[in-house]
């Protein structure tokens, strides 16, 4: 799956990768690879600005540490981030169920 196909869902995916605990940028990418079986083909460099944007939105918070002589920025979910993730998950389930129903000709499980 390419980056453009993920458009609109990158924030939720990044928040989900941080749900298990604090991670730095590369660890977030590794977590996404593991959780998707390597099917997410994202340019690694673009993950970092996305994390910065989530931090500015108050959904995650970053802190610096020194590892192996290099400065490393680690991110963790805020309470607002957990709420946002929960909301995005619910929206995604609803969206996926609706589109699946349309594509497969099945009745929608949650009609309007």
């Amino acid at each position: 799956m390419r980056a453009e196909e993920l458009k609109g869902h990158l924030d939720a995916v990044l928040l989900a990768a941080l749900e298990g605990g604090p991670r730095h940028g590369y660890a977030v990418i590794e977590a996404l690879r593991q959780s998707t079986g390597g099917r997410l083909d994202l340019p690694t460099g673009t993950i970092y600005p996305a994390l910065r944007r989530l931090e500015q939105a108050g959904l995650i918070t970053g802190s610096w540490s020194v590892v192996g002589g290099r400065r490393r920025r680690e991110y963790r979910l805020t309470a607002a981030g957990r709420r946002a993730l929960s909301g995005r998950r619910a929206d995604w389930r609803d969206f996926a169920a609706t589109v699946s129903a349309a594509l497969e000709g099945r009745p929608c499980p949650n009609p309007a």
Binding site: H24, Y26, I29, G45, Y48, R70, R71, R72, R73
Partner: peptide
Amino acid sequence: EELTDGLAE
């Protein structure tokens, strides 16, 4: 600095 760490990893 953050990108340097990521690229090194």
